[in-house]
Amino acid sequence: MNRREAIDRTAARLTPLYDPREARNLARRIVAEYAAASLSELLTDPAREVEPEAAERLEAAAGRLAKGEPLQYILGAADFYGHRFAVREGVLIPRPETEELVDWILREEPQAGRMLDIGTGSGCIAASLALERPGAEVFAADISETALETAAANCRRLGARVTLRRADALGAEPGVQDLTEAFGQGFDLIVSNPPYVPESDRAAMHPNVRDHEPAEALFVPDDDRFRFYRAIARAGRRMLRPGGALYFEIYEHAAGELARLLADEGYEEIELREDLFGRPRMARCRRATSE
């Protein structure tokens, strides 16, 4: 089986679950991984044979993909902001829109010397900030032990200086510190990509997300959709220095409501930003300097 045949065969297995264009893109990515080739090499040398051992591993991986398992969990890794992060079941997969959030922070907050990432997951936000700003103090929180273990391993491997602590953003988990207890005050910047998808939207999500990624990192009750944003905003008023920035990844269908919530919580300079597809997916605000 050569590279072209491997791509065609894999894409055909994926079309019942993905649209043809996405199926072919996934097929190219997984063939490139197991054939140890770049995407450009697949195009320039499509007739090269895939080694038998690699072809066997590719077949097994394609079978998992066809059942809806995310490619990143199969590979055990996801690319994010120029680095490769280990991921596994129980840890949210990093996404391109989160890269845009990191990029916004790095461009807009050059003087931020003390930063906190809440709900760090794989550690992709915190580690990226630490690698780009080696002189900054970067902290990260999560309630999931699996996430913290994964984030710690990623930070060690990448050489990112991040202090990780278990903390509960809602302050409701018995025996777990809340954010202020775990990290104190005086932050220049707090960032979070919290759970924000309403439970009523669960059924409409693609099964590779809905059935495999951690529900606790994705979904919130319909009757309390802003629970994490509200809790983090209130913690931010204690933890941020006056004028300090609070950044969120947000649900595109609730951007206006979130902006009003942040205003009601006393934040200033509230700004919503669209992603590359024109969807409102990011928010920034600042703690009032007069508090």
Rank of each mutant, 00 (worst) to 15 (best):
Y229A: 02
R230H: 10
R230I: 00
R230S: 04
R230W: 07
R230Y: 04
A231N: 08
I232G: 03
A233E: 03
R234D: 13
R234P: 02
A235E: 07
A235R: 03
A235G: 02
A235Q: 13
G236K: 01
G236S: 09
G236P: 00
R237F: 00
R237M: 07
R238E: 12
M239G: 04
M239H: 10
M239F: 06
M239I: 05
M239Q: 12
L240Q: 08
L240P: 09
R241Y: 02
R241K: 15
R241Q: 07
P242F: 12
P242D: 04
P242M: 13
P242I: 02
P242A: 08
G243Y: 04
G243P: 00
G244N: 10
A245E: 05
A245T: 15
A245L: 02
L246G: 00
L246Q: 01
L246K: 02
Y247Q: 08
Y247C: 09
F248T: 06
F248M: 02
F248Y: 14
F248V: 05
E249Y: 09
E249V: 06
E249K: 04
E249P: 03
I250G: 00
I250T: 04
Y251D: 15
E252R: 13
H253A: 13
H253D: 15
A254V: 00
A254Q: 10
A254F: 12
A255D: 11
A255K: 11
A255R: 10
G256N: 05
G256P: 10
E257F: 06
L258G: 08
L258S: 11
R260T: 10
R260N: 08
R260Q: 15
R260D: 15
L261K: 14
A263D: 10
A263I: 02
A263M: 04
A263Y: 04
D264S: 15
D264T: 14
E265L: 08
E265D: 14
G266E: 08
Y267M: 08
E268V: 11
E269K: 12
I270S: 04
E271T: 14
